[in-house]
Each structure stands twice: as structure tokens, then as C-alpha cells.
Design a binder for these strands. Sequence first.
DNA 1: GTCTATATCGGGATAGAC
DNA 2: GTCTATCCCGATATAGAC
Lengths: 200, 200
Amino acid sequence: MSENTEQIILKAAHDTFLEHGFDGTSMQMIADAAGMNKALLHYYFRSKDKLFQAVFISIFGKFIPPLIGIMSSERPFFERLELFVFHYIDNINKNPLVPLFILHELKRNPDQFLNIIKSSGIDPKVILALLKKEMDEGNIIEMDPRQLFINILSLCIFPIAAKPMMKGLFFNDSDEEYASFIESRKKEVSRFIINAIRKP
Amino acid sequence: MSENTEQIILKAAHDTFLEHGFDGTSMQMIADAAGMNKALLHYYFRSKDKLFQAVFISIFGKFIPPLIGIMSSERPFFERLELFVFHYIDNINKNPLVPLFILHELKRNPDQFLNIIKSSGIDPKVILALLKKEMDEGNIIEMDPRQLFINILSLCIFPIAAKPMMKGLFFNDSDEEYASFIESRKKEVSRFIINAIRKP
DNA sequence: GTCTATATCGGGATAGAC
DNA sequence: GTCTATCCCGATATAGAC
């Protein structure tokens, strides 16, 4: 069962780390979630750190690459933008714990970041070039492409990462109200952005 | 020295919790930062939880109330918006650890939230009413005021909370480049928002 | 490969000397 | 009010039986 057990451990560690973070997770919690003894965790992954490293890489991979595909298609820019926002919000909304997990663990240990980026061959700067191109062609107003792209990311990610807070502040602590709010954003956000960057 | 010691402990706990979070902080770390023995911490605040509670409330207070004042002044709306964005980004930028801390701890223990809100008498919903008023008067386009306000917050907060990630992705890991990027946002963000909500 | 038992350490918390 | 010494527990990690 060697091959299988490793996957079970990874799944259990994935879920537990994602929910409670590195510091909030014990090997015992993971062992319980995996339905086995914690000694086995050390047998497959020598230390908590190594196990976390494996999990972090897999979660991080779900966060960045989906960004790039849609933006590189051949459709009109505003259409690409709408698709991008729609799918990215949808994606994050289905994995709502991911953003806060990434941000928190990245702050806890910034070093592990650059290594992962470089070894994965991911380069989000291609998106900046795409945005720049639209500006040069006169399709949208001129601005620092990084400002624009980070605006887009902010509008997609933050409201989901901040759910525990926003739900209490503005939505009577109701999960349903918040879910429908996020659902609306899939169209609302691209409308907002397009208004902001459309040429007069 | 009773009065003084309590303040020293609070300061040390504030800094340590803010930097490492509840799970990442030990009483020993706080005692070291305060230059005293950890038994004293328990003498003043019976438990780690109680000490954290005190710190959390004080940090949380710095995050929400500044929101309300500026928005309620008598100036023209776009001017208020510019001031709001400028000061709020500036405020967060001077306390860059606060947003991620709040979001992470709120997710870890959502219960402590509603109690604090209610006991503090803070009601951010007044801002929603102000935004609604501008829409009714025809000064800006119609939309759900919560969408608009959360857009504003996203654009102000997220780029600072996500610094460890963005710095690595787009700014060659340079603190200086990132600082000047955030500095630009103080004007850039309100420009972006006003474009998005200005009537055609 | 999987378990039990154990070693070792650091955590929060308290007792008691001063 | 502040310290040292200590208790007790849970953490990571390993040894060794099966």
C-alpha cells in the first residue's frame, strides 16, 4: 500500500494545513485525519517541515498558473478580462482558504517562495506585457500595468480572503448572503474594472 | 512599578503576536521581548488567551474606526473619497502587519469578532448609507453599496497584505520598489475608483 | 510498511521564596 | 511585584517489535 498511503497522508496534510496553518497544525492532527499513526508520517516524510513543503508547493500551484491561460487567448481584451475575472473568482471561491493560507505562510517564511517560483517556471510577468500591449494599442487608458493587474487581483481575492470579517460586518453573519454577494461579483468586478480603464 | 509593567507586557505582546500570530507565539517569546520572566505574564494576565484577547482588541481598534471619520465630512464626495483612500493606505502602510494578522486570527477564531464589534459600538454600515446617498442624488452610478465599499477596501488593503508575494512576483524582491509602488497607489487608487463610478 | 513505546524537548501554567 | 523551580502536558521525532 506504499504508493497509496503517501497520497492519503498528502491529502490529510493538505486539508489540515490549509485549515489551521503550519503553526496551528500538529502531526497528531494530520495522523488522525489520515486514519493512521503519526509515526507513519515521519516514515514517509521525515519531518513536519518536509511534509509542509510538499503541501505548500501543491497549493501554491493551484493559485498562480490559472491566471495565465485565459489572458493569453485571442479574443477581444474586455472579453478576456471578463472571462478571467469570472473564472478566477469562481476558482478562489471553490478554494476559499487558499489565499489567506498562502499569504500567511509566505509571510511566516518568505524564503521558500522564490525557490518555488523559480523551480516551477511560472512567470506572471507575461500578463503585464499583455496589459501593456492593450495600452500601447490605445484600447485602454495608460497606467502602470502592475497597478492595473494588482487592482484586478485585489478585487478578485480580497473579498473572499476577508470573508470572516466582511460576513460579520455587512452580511449579518449569514453564509447565504455572502455566497450570493460573491456570486454577483463574478460579473460586477469586470464591469467595475472596465469602467475604470475604458477610454473616454 | 505595577502600572508600568502591565504596559510593557502589552507592548511586547502586541509586537510579538502581530509578527507571529497566536499559534506562532510562545509566552517565552513575549517574556523575552518584555525583558522579564514569563511567570510575570501570568501574574498580570492569567493566560495566553486573555493576553491575546487584550492585544487583539487594541489592534482591531486601529483598523476599523479610521474608516468612518473622513467619509462623514461635508466636502464633495470625490474629494472625500480621495482623502479616504489616501489616509487609509497611508495608515495601513505604516502598520503593514495589521491586515493579515486580523484576517488570520479572525479565521482562527471567528467568535471573538462579533463580541468585539458589538461592545465597541462601531458600525461601518453608516458608510454604506453615505454611498447610497450619493447614488440616489445621481452623483455616481447605481450599484450595491457593499460592492462599492468592499471594492475600495480591497484596493487599499490587499496590495499591502500581499506584499511578501507581490514583491517576489513583480518587484524583484526589492523593498524600495515596493514602497514607491504603494506610495503611488495613494493617488492611483482613487483615480481608478472615480473612473469606475463616475457618471458617463 | 505499520504499529507501540519511548526519548527529548518546549509549551502553558502554578507554587512558593524573597 | 518579581523571581526560581517545578508540574504537567503535548509537541516532534526515533527505536524497535511485528
